[in-house]
Design a protein around this nucleic acid. Structure first.
Length: 587
RNA sequence: GCCAAAAUAGCUCAGCGGUAGAGCAGCGCACUCGUAAUGCGCAGGUCGUGGGUUCAAUUCCCACUUUUGGCUCCA
């Protein structure tokens, strides 16, 4: 992008930011009109809009939001000027003497910074600014109050819970409309909704919240994902391992999980006077496999992969469809290697990861490098070497990345990969993490060339993250219209009338023999209804069969996008479908 | 875990003090049909669970469970 475009864009962003921030002041004024005794906290501009936090005498209702909106429109129409005033701390304190949160904010302003106030007629707020010049720069038809939510004062769990009003705001009604349409699109793509409509999976409160039931149609997709995953892992030098779902407390004491994460582990089961815990991670088990023999530098690296299902007690309020669950399957692998191998191993993982993500139709992938946090284990030189190898791998692959300083886990630095989905939302999927903790705790060693026992490097990586979550992301990315290689039903055969059911059955046999997921709709529905049903289930290909097709041993293809191709010889269709599946192409 | 809202048939939803209603799906019958819903009929619910108020509760109140939107958390 050229410089001018950039500055043009920055100006627009700046104006939008001012509009949103100013709107939040207008909203605060409206709320204070309704609740003069309200305590006001903070009200920043955020992506797509703004919010303001209040301490209110009662809970807000939907009707309140309408009244607030109405009052906001009135305030905007009054063409009030935003006036900036710099005041002393004492003046500020006395002005906000009945506003406890503002007083706290005033005290938090560094001594060398000036304290500024913004006033628009009936309302003054402590604020750094900047704001629009006057409310006439705000469009009364370009904002919408969206939701009421609870939020801790300053985001701390121990602080009081305030009422937050979220809103979206734009410079003109058209942008608002576009944004509201985007919200609708997001709702249509919601994997929970599509999961029901397409009969992919379910969750059952009576059987345990946050535990996923994969229905046959969802399981077909999962099987396609897993088959591809296994095949590619073997191709990329990995071995599969299978490990137990539970382990005795010795394992979790040694790993440190009972020390660090006990509250998010499922409670133990007592057997033969021992406590068994359901696994929250696979790594200790993979380490047991490693420890089973004396290891030589000649054996390394080991790359052991497992689709390992783990259970973690997530807080009740955190559960969300497939995105945040209590039982999930990690596409896990652990790499045990020597210091010399570390760098090329990381490069390989990075490449592999990019290949997998692209195979699933994600084109935009961003990398994040997280370095050593304050509290951490392991030696400084190991951290430095590992971080360096991560950095080098990213650079070798020519990937732009952001550094999250001190954002690593306490046990090692990491690279996270985030993908952008079809509507631009970012999802974190891959993670590549060094672990200096486990090898230490489990006393892992290998005998090096010089006959000395040394500690191997351990890398923990997941490419898709959790299969459940990844599946949820896929559903939303494709809005349920999966590319044929993943689609639960690839082909629906629709005879125009019962007379052609036999020909339909013959085509079905041929397709099945060729390994396609196909079905014949020989119900008593009319053809139109069958098409509609297949269409709502987002089946990529519908084959319409009647007299003409039967005569020519052909099929007429209706694609799910409505396009049509008539009289295609069955063999041609099979070839083209094979090719589409092979290429993992979307249609 | 915290704040707020919600929970009615398999699904989507209406009803909201006088003990339940639609559409779709399901089942049956008829229709035999050329590119997004053929017609008619039948069946389906102790209105999330447990208490309370009331002559009477799906409806009002309380608690619990779960879900939703956030907050916090996320090895």
């Amino acid at each position: 992008m050229r410089g001018d475009d950039m500055s043009q864009e920055n100006k627009i962003d700046e104006q939008l930011h001012k509009v949103r921030h100013s709107m939040s002041h207008v909203m605060a004024e409206a709320v204070l009109q309704m609740f003069p005794e309200a305590q006001i906290a903070i009200g920043p501009a955020i992506d797509n809009g703004f919010y303001y936090d209040f301490d209110l005498p009662r809970a807000l209702t939907q009707e309140d939001l309408e009244e607030i909106s109405e009052r906001m429109r009135t305030i905007i129409s009054e063409d009030k000027e935003f006036k900036r005033n710099v005041v002393s701390r004492e003046q500020a304190r006395s002005m906000f003497s009945d506003q406890v949160y503002k007083l706290e904010l005033i005290d938090a302003i560094p001594e060398d910074e000036e304290v500024s106030l913004y006033n628009q007629g009936g309302f003054t707020d402590l604020c750094r600014g900047p704001h629009v010049k006057s409310t006439k720069e705000l469009n009364p038809n370009a904002f919408k109050l969206l939701s009421i939510a609870g939020a801790y004062w300053r985001g701390k769990e121990t602080n009081p819970m305030l009422t937050r009003i979220y809103a979206t705001a734009w410079t003109n009604p058209k942008d608002l409309r576009l944004y509201l349409q985007k919200l609708e699109d997001i709702e249509k793509r919601d994997h929970r909704k599509l999961g029901k409509e397409l009969d992919l999976f379910s969750l059952h409160e009576e059987a345990g919240p946050g535990l996923v039931y994969w229905h046959p149609r969802g399981a077909r997709i999962r099987t396609a994902i897993e088959n591809f995953w296994r095949e590619q892992h073997y191709k990329n030098g990995y071995e599969m391992v299978f490990t137990p779902h539970v382990g005795k407390s010795w394992l979790w004491e040694t790993s440190g999980h009972l020390g660090f994460y006990k509250e998010s582990m499922y409670s133990p089961m007592e057997m033969d006077k021992s406590d068994y815990y359901t696994k929250p991670m696979n790594c200790p088990f993979h380490i047991m496999v490693y420890r089973n023999s004396k290891r030589s530098y000649r054996d390394l690296p080991f790359r052991w992969a497992e689709l390992g299902t783990v259970y973690r007690y997530e807080k009740a309020g955190a559960l969300h469809g497939l995105m945040r669950v209590r039982g999930f399957t990690q596409d896990d692998a652990h790499i045990f290697c020597t210091p010399e191998q570390m760098e090329s191993e990381i490069i390989d993982v990075l490449r592999f990861s990019m290949f997998m993500l692209r195979s699933f139709g994600f084109e935009q992938i961003n990398a994040y490098l997280s370095t050593r946090p304050e509290k951490s284990v392991g030696e400084a030189e190991h951290w430095a070497a590992a971080t360096e190898s991560l950095r080098k791998a990213l650079e070798t692959e020519g990937m732009a990345y952001e550094v999250d300083e001190a954002g690593g886990a306490f046990y090692g630095p990491k690279i996270d990969l985030k993908v952008k989905d079809a509507i631009g939302r970012e999802w974190q999927l891959s993670t590549i993490q060094f672990d200096f903790n486990m090898p230490q705790r489990f006393g892992m060693t290998f005998v090096d060339r010089d006959g000395v026992e040394k500690q191997p490097y351990m890398v923990h990586r997941a490419l898709l993250g959790s299969i459940e979550r990844f599946f949820g992301v896929l559903v939303e990315h494709y809005a349920g219209a999966f590319p044929p290689w993943l689609s639960p039903d690839q082909v629906c055969i629709i005879p125009v009338s019962e007379a052609f059911n036999d020909y339909g059955a013959q085509v079905l046999r041929t397709l099945k023999q060729n390994g396609f997921r196909a079905y014949l709709d020989d119900s008593t529905d009319r053809m139109n209804a069958k098409i509609r049903n297949a269409q709502t289930m987002k089946v990529p290909y519908m084959l319409i069969l009647g007299e003409r097709e039967m005569q020519q041993q052909a099929v007429s293809i209706r694609y799910r996008n409505g396009k049509q191709e008539n009289g295609v010889p069955l063999g041609d269709f099979i070839n083209s479908l094979s090719c589409t599946i092979e290429k993992k192409a979307q249609i």
